[in-house]
Computed example of a mutant assay.
Amino acid sequence: MAFIRRYLLPRLIVYFLVIFVGITVIFVIPRLLPIDPIQQLIGKLSAQGTYLDPKAINRMIETLQELYGLKGSLWEQYVNFWGRLLRGDFGPSYYQFPVPVITLIKQSLPWTFGLLLTTTIISWIIGNILGGLGGYFSDKNWVKILDGVAMVIRPMPYYILALGLLILFAYVFPIFPLGGGYLIGGHVSFTFSSLLILLRHAFLPALSLILINIFVWFQAMKLFVQSVKSEDYVNYAKLGGVMQSRIVYKYVIKNAMLPQITGLALSLGQIFSGALITEIAFSYPGLGTLLYNAIFTGDYNLLMGITTISILVITTSILVIDLLYPLFDPRVRYR
């Protein structure tokens, strides 16, 4: 009972509060944009020379307002939005009308999930291993070389690295395709040749994310390890004759990993930073490209659908990591 009252319940309250506030914000922000999707659609029809009767225009506006959840006052729209959200209905997309938003998200989510999950895990593991060893053996030459490389790559914007990889490996040396997630007109299947095509198209986007994120984790882990290795219990273990390998892995790196575990959950927010830019640069068919199209066209429903899914994924991952934290840190269990 003490665990539920002191640890689980406060985190569940924060979890649902963050979701509520986040979804409310994404409901309000699109309505502050200077783009009216309904007026844009009518304007396009008029620009194409289509004659529309004034009564037909009014009926069309009412129908589209109902479809996009823009009918009624702001409060009525808000209540209607929550009702549709609880049913998993985000309405139709504007720029791919009349395809439902949830269908577009289902099509794009596996691409982003596969790209992000793979690159995040690979960069987190490699970055923490290199950072842990580099922080403890900071006087080694290979650590100094990695520090120099990190100083160059770490502050580099994602789009600069992505464009550099495209020019080098898709134009100068045409080893990989310029963009896309699969062959044009092709169908993904569970075969070895299909998997090779997928990996070939995903290699450059994944490499651009991994290269930067490895050095993000490397620098952070190195600082944590340098701080931990100066603690009294580490010095006591050295004086007690404990093996150096045990000190490195059991005493130093294990304790320095705790903030990195939290950072792993927070890194899923890359869809709004590096992953979005990377997907656009490589024309990768993920949520980042879909979100860009939604912003560009003023697609309210698609904007709210993508950001709602992102909020749910990020907050849930943080909650899971927070609940599993006592398994990694016994000090939390003792409290």
Rank of each mutant, 00 (worst) to 15 (best):
M151I: 13
G72R: 06
I121E: 09
M60A: 14
P157T: 07
F113S: 11
P157F: 01
G134D: 00
A162E: 00
G148R: 00
K106I: 03
L133N: 13
L146W: 09
K144H: 13
W111L: 07
L161A: 08
Y159A: 02
I121N: 06
G127K: 00
L70S: 02
T63I: 08
Q96C: 11
K71R: 08
R59G: 09
L161F: 09
P157G: 06
I145C: 06
G148W: 00
Q96G: 06
M156K: 06
L165F: 04
Q65T: 04
T119M: 07
I61P: 14
D147F: 00
L117D: 11
D139R: 15
I61F: 12
F81C: 01
G135T: 07
L70G: 04
M151A: 15
D89L: 06
D89Y: 01
G72H: 08
W124D: 12
T120S: 15
P110V: 01
P110G: 07
Y78D: 12
T63Y: 12
V143K: 10
I167F: 13
G91C: 04
R154G: 10
G131C: 14
R84A: 01
T63C: 09
L168K: 11
M151S: 14
P98K: 04
E76R: 01
E66A: 12
I125Y: 07
T103K: 10
G134Y: 06
Q96M: 14
N80M: 09
P155W: 07
L166A: 03
W142R: 10
A150P: 04
N141C: 07
S108A: 10
L146G: 05
Y78I: 05
R59Y: 14
L168W: 11
Q96K: 08
M151C: 11
V99P: 08
E62N: 11
K106C: 01
I102S: 09
G72E: 02
S93Q: 02
D147H: 02
E62I: 14
R84C: 00
W142K: 07
S93G: 10
I153Y: 00
E66K: 12
R59S: 15
L70W: 01
S138F: 14
V149D: 06
Y95D: 14
L133P: 08
G134V: 10
L117F: 15
W142A: 11
I167C: 05
I160R: 09
